[in-house]
Design a protein around this nucleic acid. Structure first.
Lengths: 239, 239
DNA sequence: CGCTTAGTTGACGTGGATCAAGTACTGTGG
DNA sequence: CCACAGTACTTGATCCACGTCAACTAAGCG
């Protein structure tokens, strides 16, 4: 299988052979995590950055009263932890939602990339900037969208991101997440997530059986979620 | 007055003389915007990046039904638009909340920095990564905090960020924003913002008169907002 | 076959939105 | 100097979307 980071980046700009070789070298050392285990804990100062190559991972934040919020869901090809190269310490947990395979890149190697390969540096930078753009989209949805619209937006985003790394078949994809996790991503109660999902299914725009999501009416779902994929930067351009 | 970007970055790492000179060159070309005017509009492809040197700017997103959400508030020293170097197009408006002075850096010059000054490149990258960390803090507050706690968190963040660029006096600072704007940052109605502010003032931890905010009990406010400044990366470290 | 976890449903309560009507402040023009 | 218009702030009354609580069903799984 192709390196998912190569898929992620080459969707946004052309990669030279040197750059592809460098990416493969960065992501050669992998490690597996079982579903539910922490990959990084809040407050750590990791010496390596992590790329998800298989499985789903989340960023979890815990409040004093035990409430949890999930600020991001990461799919294969996402350099979940690239920013730890620059940050003091990580302000949240990264948890394997499903069984995950993760590639570890020592920070020293990344720093060397910034010294030798400016274009690849900019592309790695781009990947963190897309992360921020996704955060903003979530902020807007959390602050001003109804649960139904938010859910639709979320599914549109997931479809678009999974499509990039070849994890969709038509409009169908695997999304093995519980309604509990979904609640903590949308800032809702589990009960309300359940009802919202029923409402969304009732519109006929999606089906969600087990862990399989099918978008049956993309245009309707897109309209409902007011989804504009521009923020995912899916165009190939010199960067 | 010192270049606010120098203040912002030198709080996080040491800058060489070369780097300071480069920063000053990057931010020498300024432009003024009146309060309420758009600095960048959604969908544009700017050829320069923007640094706020004076005033406050926001990122605004508009939904189909006219609702507005503000995903970030930017203070002097913030490279609001640095990511436009890498992005296809900007997914939101940037609006001057107060009269703003802004420095414009042509993308070509920034690209040259990535080719010549890897350490400064990493620090600029850092500034976008801190942006993302602030977004995550907002996501958590939007999703799982009560309005009162959220407001407290917001004020703690503003205090901490303004302190970095020398815009506080003791625990007092200027925050010339309306409750309307505040509502769109916290995802609340104006009426509820008003009541929440009254409640917060009643705790005795802050006063807010006109555009002047005073934190009267930092520990109380911090506890209320569960504020941990770690995500702002205020430590000086080699990066 | 019992145990655990996820999903579902109904009843009920409440936090925050909405609506409507004020008041206070600022700037503008006569 | 006052009249006014416009904007922000404030307050009270009402409503409903969503949370909470409590029970049940369904689906693994040892």
């Amino acid at each position: 299988m192709a390196n998912p980071l190569v898929l992620f980046l080459s969707r946004r700009d052309d990669l030279s052979d040197d750059e592809i070789a460098a990416i493969n070298a960065l992501t050669s050392n992998t490690q597996d995590f079982e579903a539910g285990t922490s990959i990084i804990r809040q407050g750590e100062r990791p010496q390596s950055s992590l790329l998800v190559t298989e499985g789903l991972a989340i960023r979890s934040h815990y409040l004093a009263d035990g409430k949890r919020m999930i600020s991001a869901l990461h799919v294969p090809g996402d350099y979940v932890d690239l920013h730890s190269l620059l940050l003091d310490q990580i302000d949240h947990d990264v948890v394997a939602l499903t069984a995950c395979r993760v590639a570890l890149t020592p920070h020293g190697e990344l720093r060397r990339i910034t010294e030798r390969l400016p274009h690849l540096t900019r592309l790695l930078w781009l990947s963190t900037v897309i992360d921020a753009a996704m955060h903003r989209a979530w902020i807007v949805a959390l602050g001003r969208m109804s649960p139904l619209n938010h859910m639709a937006h979320f599914l549109c985003e997931m479809y678009s991101r999974l499509e990039v790394v070849g994890l969709t078949e038509g409009y169908t994809f695997k999304l093995p997440i519980t309604q509990i996790d979904l609640a903590d991503m949308l800032g809702l109660s589990v009960v309300h997530v359940n009802r919202t999902l029923q409402e969304l299914r009732a519109t006929g725009s999606i089906s969600w059986l087990g862990s399989t999501v099918s978008i049956k009416d993309w245009d309707a779902l897109r309209a409902l979620g007011q989804f504009d994929p521009a923020y995912l930067n899916l165009q190939k351009r010199p960067r």
